[in-house]
Amino acid sequence: MNSVQLLRGQLRPALIGLMMTVACVGTVRADEGVALTPVNQVPDGVEVRGKQVAAFTWDDRQGKNLLVLAEQISERDDDGSQSAFVYAAQYLIDGDRPRRMWMLYDDVQRCEFDAALRFDMAATRVTDLAGDGSTQATVGYSLTCASDVSPNQFKLIMHVGKSRKYRLRGVDRYGAAWWDEELGALRGMPLPTDCSVAAQQALVSQYKEQGTELPLPGCYGDEKDFAKAPERYLTFMRQHWFALMKQQDTEWGQAQTQPQPQEPTVDEDSAP
């Protein structure tokens, strides 16, 4: 049987009838979150567009829920362009017929460079922010059409019930710093900790050579979606965004400073 448990309380620069097989790999847990049970096979009646990359179940006051995530990158067309998309959906497993609560679809069409859309699995969260048994499902993903290593667009989206969604949209930390051989250190604009326009402009003033476009790598553009939302939703999404960007920043920085493998030398006298 699937089991869940409610857990209480707990940015280079941007110039640019339920039957399913349960994967016994433990649960995904997070602060202020619901423990999710991963599944390999979704029930009949659940649509999956593209290649399924993850699926999770949990229980709340509505009943048993299912979240499915899928991605697809196409082969290049005759003109050399490439397309990609991501797909997500939440279902309520009610009797023998799954009922879709909401669907997310986003794409990059006919990209002349390299198209990429992929979910950030660390962004996948289900929360019960009011502690009343009603849950909110949040997913995040990056998208780009580029020919270089530079920050991607990033979207963090919370779905509440069938029709309400709240988004933070900005730029991630991929390619936000690079290794300077002369300095022997990373260069680039640091990770912002405040995405207000004033705070971002203050960073731009401090790092003038790094560019002036907003949002900066690791920041979102605005919080307009939350104008009429409960304050706890925005509080959670801010904290979640910055935690994700901090993780990305750390992973990218570590990748830039890893020693590169040396080509083996060949002794000419012993070469065949």
Rank of each mutant, 00 (worst) to 15 (best):
T193P: 06
Q153L: 08
G221Y: 04
M189F: 04
G221T: 06
E209D: 12
P230T: 10
G184Y: 09
L168D: 06
S196T: 15
E181F: 04
A199L: 11
Y233C: 06
P215N: 09
K208G: 00
G188F: 05
Q153S: 10
P190C: 03
K224R: 14
T193E: 15
W179L: 10
A202S: 12
Y174G: 01
M189N: 04
M158C: 04
V171C: 01
I157H: 01
P217S: 15
T193D: 14
A229G: 04
M158F: 01
A227S: 14
L234C: 09
T193G: 14
Q201G: 10
W179I: 01
A185K: 15
H159A: 06
A176E: 06
V171S: 07
Y207A: 02
A176M: 08
L156M: 02
W179G: 00
R167I: 03
L203N: 03
T193N: 15
L216K: 01
W178A: 14
F154G: 00
S196H: 08
L156R: 00
Y233M: 14
P192K: 08
V171P: 00
A199Y: 08
T193K: 13
L183Q: 12
D225L: 02
Y166M: 05
G184V: 07
R164Q: 15
D172Q: 07
N152M: 07
T212E: 11
Q201N: 15
R187Y: 03
Y207V: 02
L214F: 06
L234V: 09
Y174E: 11
D172F: 04
R187T: 12
L183H: 02
Y233S: 10
T212D: 13
P151W: 09
G221Q: 11
L186S: 06
N152F: 11
C195Q: 10
Y220I: 05
